[in-house]
Write a protein that binds this DNA or RNA. Structure first.
Lengths: 212, 212, 212, 212
DNA sequence: GATGAATGAGGCTTCATTCAT
DNA sequence: CATGAATGAAGCCTCATTCAT
């Protein structure tokens, strides 16, 4: 407290892993898992190559730490929202989709999703981890939301399992496009327009018709 | 004709690239672009590594040839169907989706789509080629189909551009799941169920409500 | 035969692995297993680093090939001699010890023995291989020789198993000294004198006393 | 004395090197010189890596200290015994061999001998030190014992120099086996049986035949 | 005295591409 | 046409040693 020098030092020590994770996130998103060189991660974080290995056992653990630190918490929040929501499920759906867009889709974190879709088959251990920590939980959360809508009579009764996947698809695809062919397209997709179309179509397809 | 030996040779000369392309397709689908080793391609085709370079300038050209040979023709057929179709657009939609599933989605060609989504950012030239030859044409075809439905009063008026993308998403995702996390999931997605859910939801969301 | 150019080429191709093995043998003997850099092996053989991997999967396989090519055949010969010998076992003993000295002890192959004694605990797979292919066979051969002497009444009855090891010890040690502290000693051990002392002591210790 | 705190500190200061040396001994024996990581030594001693460098200039000096602290004193005792012995040289021989076995061969110190035989050529300075401090003195002691036996008419006259080495061989080998191929062998050598065989053979080979 | 974060050279291994035959 | 030996640039990871605190 009264020792600013030491404090600076400690702050640095504690901050170091965060700096490394930030650099790693940037590069994983930019290049993908295999094509990211640890040299570059270190260079971007302003440290030497060896320093990385003080904090992370190897490339795969570094990646897992990036996911744990950045993606998993957002998922936790979303789970909390679904659990505690009090309004209509239509509103909840909008809330989740837009919240996801703000916290993941529109940020560089979308690159993690893309990366996992892209390279999972080449890195089984990382894949298993991501599947357990992210995909399974994410799908469960969406499924719970759909069930809520059906139970409350707001949504048509549908195959929850399949509907979950159908719903996730456009969201995942939006992230993938951002990191795939965006350089080729002048007619940049407006994510907002795309999301509106998606929500619109989905609700048209799901909402229980009052009479009929 | 009267020279069987020479003829066999000539046939071989023509056949050779096909064997190479078949081997390359298998391996690109299995491993992805970067992780496919030309050694393995040559070995699977039963030729030496150098032989590959007699027919293809480099790895990227080999991949482009695979796409040209396998994916592009299917796209041409679909374009023809849309152009010439005479029934309802709802039926046309089902025709296109199922035809796509039979010719691409259910075959190893789905791996090419997955691969491009995955690795495009690391190989700009390949990406540009694929975008021009496949994506642009594919989206145009879908868009034309939607326009047809709207013009004939079968579909609600929607933003064609966005709707095209929303519609493509579940189909692309179905291909990606096949090649991404399939090893992690016991609850193998039934593609047929998934497609039915998708068509059902889409048509519910698109079909113009008669009265209301 | 009438194509010297091609012949030269083929000779080179066939000779290459031998050149690599020769270079590897030199360096393994000089530096040990862990301290031998594959760069140096390649350089000494006059090829690039990558070339090594055309012929040997990795460092351990390279080493195993060195052993198979150089040590194992000598062992085979010795086994043949023991099997077919017709003279006295005392003479056979001298024959084996001196033959071993000429073919292994006095050559750089002695370095392989030293290396294995030295580094075995750090490279379990190589160790297992060497134990199975060299040590087990070598001890079996010595044991057979001792049994022969005992059965023919030339040697005192002794614990064959232990005696085998006691006998091998001075021979192994002679090889180890050559590669251990030789740089420290001006009073170079004369291997011949040492071997004479050894044979002399051993026979004094083993020969069955006629009367007594 | 009246300052227990300070005293504890001072004791610690003296004790610290002992703890470090103990940890270093364990690891050098277990892994060898090159393969022992100073990280591990520090961890086993419960200190930080940097602390090692407060007490020892570098890895080589650490090793030399381990030898000085553990091996050299035992040698000194043996020298004393040989100098002062009053019984028969045959008994002295047994005394020395068994004493060596109890104090060195059967303990982890045997690993130091093995390590030096194994890695000496890669670390010239350490080697020179070990040769001067251990090998030269050890051989001199054995030689003196043999001379004593010959002078007193108990042993046949032999080349003392060579006999010394022949005698040392089985003892050194026994240590090396313990640390080399022990994992490969189910038929664990019984050191006691081996030593009995060795003493038996040696004395048969050395003892002056009374008449004849 | 003690710490432990940081370094950076060095080793093994991979693979697209070339070229002499 | 076809071969396949050879290359060499990279990439991941290790570890003895230093030094600011």
């Amino acid at each position: 407290m009264n020792c600013p020098l030491k404090k600076r030092w400690e702050r640095r020590k504690d901050a170091r892993p965060q700096e490394l994770l930030a650099a790693a996130l940037d590069l994983f998103v930019e290049k993908g898992f295999a094509a990211t060189r640890l040299d570059d991660v270190a260079a971007r974080a302003g440290v030497s190559k060896g320093t990385l290995y003080l904090y992370f056992t190897n490339k795969e653990e570094l990646f897992k730490a990036v996911v744990r630190e950045n993606v998993v918490p957002v998922l936790g929040e979303a789970e909390g929202i679904v659990e505690a929501y009090e309004g209509s499920t239509v509103d909840l759906f909008r809330e989740i989709v837009l919240g996801w867009w703000e916290r993941i889709g529109a940020t560089k974190l979308s690159g993690i999703t893309k990366l996992m879709m892209a390279e999972s088959s080449n890195f089984p251990e990382v894949t298993q981890f991501y599947h357990d920590e992210v995909i399974r939980r994410g799908e469960a959360m969406i499924a719970r939301m759909l069930e809520r809508g059906v139970q409350r009579g707001e949504f048509r009764p549908v195959d929850i399992h399949q509907a979950t996947r159908v719903i996730c698809s456009p969201m995942i695809m939006l992230m993938m496009w951002k990191h795939s062919f965006s350089t080729c397209r002048q007619d940049q997709v407006s994510p907002e327009d795309y999301l509106n179309s998606f929500v619109d179509m989905f609700l048209h397809g799901m909402i229980a018709q009052p009479s009929r």
